[in-house]
Design a protein around this nucleic acid. Structure first.
Lengths: 333, 333
DNA sequence: AAATTTTTCGACAACGTTGTCGTAAATAAA
DNA sequence: TTTATTTACGACAACGTTGTCGAAAAATTT
């Protein structure tokens, strides 16, 4: 059932029918309702491929994320999707698997009208973002969230990573910790930087020297990761607290502590960034800095749609910061 | 940069250029390489909107799932996306939030060429699937996964829910349990049915009477859910084991047990379907039936692409069953 | 009643691509 | 050499929709 067929049924020109369906002021109320009724009766629906092609608007956005196998990106997607569904937009999802080459390949494919906007959380390998600047040059708005890049005038949505890092560290210090190790995954990510800066500043403020050998960047590989943590906790001068920048590292720490018969929190206190519901149920329950993941998706999508809908999106360069929550549980008591 | 502009640069007709780019046998090797070189030099990319429209193929599939905020659907998406990326397809994601009306609205939107295929895991409210039959009638293949519908000849991918239910129950019986409660969320879902059937058959086989008041279907609402479990565990004749059909209910059980000072596994043993990595780290570690989520996404996508690519997809009606894994931990020892 | 404006609709040309068909030129078969 | 066949390209018409423009008909103003 196409527009032309519908028009023939109605004895109207197809341009009239088209305008009637889109509630154009050029069409009388009488014919509008006649068209609408017939369209409903014959279950006519516009062909989105044709419509998108004609208008050069896809009514689709892309979400590019490293992976979706943790408790952070799931809610983020949910937050994005709820706004998109509201606005009548469709959501394409792409996973980079932390691979910058894939990230580049994906952005390449988006450059030609397939999407009207892009939401991205960078891969841990990404240092340069010309591939995203290329997208933006094609008038396709880009919003960064969580894993952002600093030196861009594109809008970004993050949580207050510096404050969270600072507060988490002070929390440990207040509970008597002197040798606090900082575990993160990638040196490239701005979130790692900021969390680390918060950590360092908190130590300095409290008169604790920053030991670079307590600042550890783990590999992606699960085994190497475990080995690093094991080595850290086995050394004579072992840290009395672990501050993990990502949940995975905290869970590995739990495993290793169990293996080495180290008690949490007596021997080692543990704090981590995490959005996992099960943190409260761990043994011992895990103190977390929990990010407002759903809200972050929501906020990023809202900004993106503003940019898509208004043309003056060039002006939108603000950085939005959402507050994370420090949830104190047994692992730091 | 369009095809026409590219053709003008090359002093060729745009149909020649089009054919050269798609490696048509009608074009000589010499001009092909000339075209390809120029296209690369000018960074020409086909307009996907135009191409899709012309061919009436979107190179896009839809994934419709209830939600993405648990450890099951995340890996499923990952499994789907990896195949799609391989095949050069794009993945649209839609969340029903367990709402059948939304599910219907979503399928409505997909009917007109926006996607070449659909992967779906039904909402817990869905009993009737004419909305998906409508999609299939429009020659758009549909593959069901995990939360499927029985009475359809569309392909379906599930895990061996009956066996898992049976084995989990026998596992509890072998550990001395007599009063095993079965907790699920929806009566509509075929997975719930099958898991329940496995539970019942295991009881019968072992000479244990099936008590209908131990078969409990929880509401979606978190509070009501907790109240139901609390009531169950507070009664004089309380069950000595909980078999949860979904992870959420097992975690709620943990919470309530903590609240009521009931010891797991001494007072109550707990087993659940779950894909959570943290199950091993809970207090006590949680015995799970773990589904091969990533593989399920992979398998479903593979079948869908076969149907999309071959025209003889009408013949594909098989049901694929993947094996789940019973991982015994402390909560049932 | 004439002139002007508004309302309401139809004709038509895009949007960029793909596939069919026609047709020269080049090659092969008669 | 003539005829048949293949090769290599161009012309052109779609695909279904939207937006511009023109023009009758109706309503309004002079």
């Amino acid at each position: 059932m196409t527009l032309k067929q519908l028009a023939k049924e109605l004895n109207l020109s197809f341009s009239t029918v088209s305008k009637a369906l889109r509630d154009s002021h050029e069409i009388s109320a009488a014919t509008k309702s006649r068209v609408l009724a017939k369209a409903k009766a014959l279950n006519y629906q516009v062909n989105p491929l044709a419509s998108s092609f004609r208008k050069q608007k896809s009514k689709t956005i892309a979400v590019i994320i490293p992976e979706v196998v943790n408790d952070f990106f799931g809610p983020v997607i949910s937050g994005i999707e709820s706004i998109a569904q509201q606005k009548g937009y469709h959501v394409l999802i792409y996973l980079t698997h932390e691979d910058v080459e894939r990230e580049i390949a994906i952005t390449q494919v988006l450059q030609n009208g397939r999407v009207d906007g892009v939401l991205i959380s960078l891969s841990e390998q990404t240092t340069d973002t010309t591939h995203l600047d290329n997208v933006r040059q094609k008038e396709i708005p880009v919003v960064y969230f969580d894993r952002i890049v600093e030196n861009t005038d594109a809008p970004k949505v993050t949580t207050d990573d510096y404050c969270s890092g600072f507060n988490a560290t002070e929390h440990l210090i207040q509970h008597g910790c002197k040798r606090i190790a900082f575990l993160s995954i990638s040196q490239n990510l701005s979130i790692s930087h900021k969390r680390l800066k918060g950590y360092e500043d908190a130590l300095n403020k409290n008169g604790i020297k920053v030991h670079t050998n307590l600042i550890i960047s783990c590999e992606r590989d699960d085994e190497k990761c475990a080995a690093t943590i094991r080595k850290l906790l086995k050394q004579k001068n072992r840290p009395d607290a672990i501050f993990a920048a990502v949940e995975k590292l905290a869970l590995k720490t739990y495993e290793i502590c169990h293996e080495l018969k180290l008690n949490i929190p007596t021997d080692v206190k543990v704090i981590t960034f995490s959005n996992s519901y099960t943190a409260a149920l761990l043994n011992p329950s895990l103190t977390t800095i929990t990010q407002p993941a759903f809200e972050m998706g929501n906020e990023a999508a809202t900004i993106l749609f503003k940019m898509i809908e208004k043309k003056g999106y060039q002006s939108m360069k603000e950085a939005t910061t959402l507050a994370s929550q420090l949830i104190v549980r047994s692992s730091t008591k």
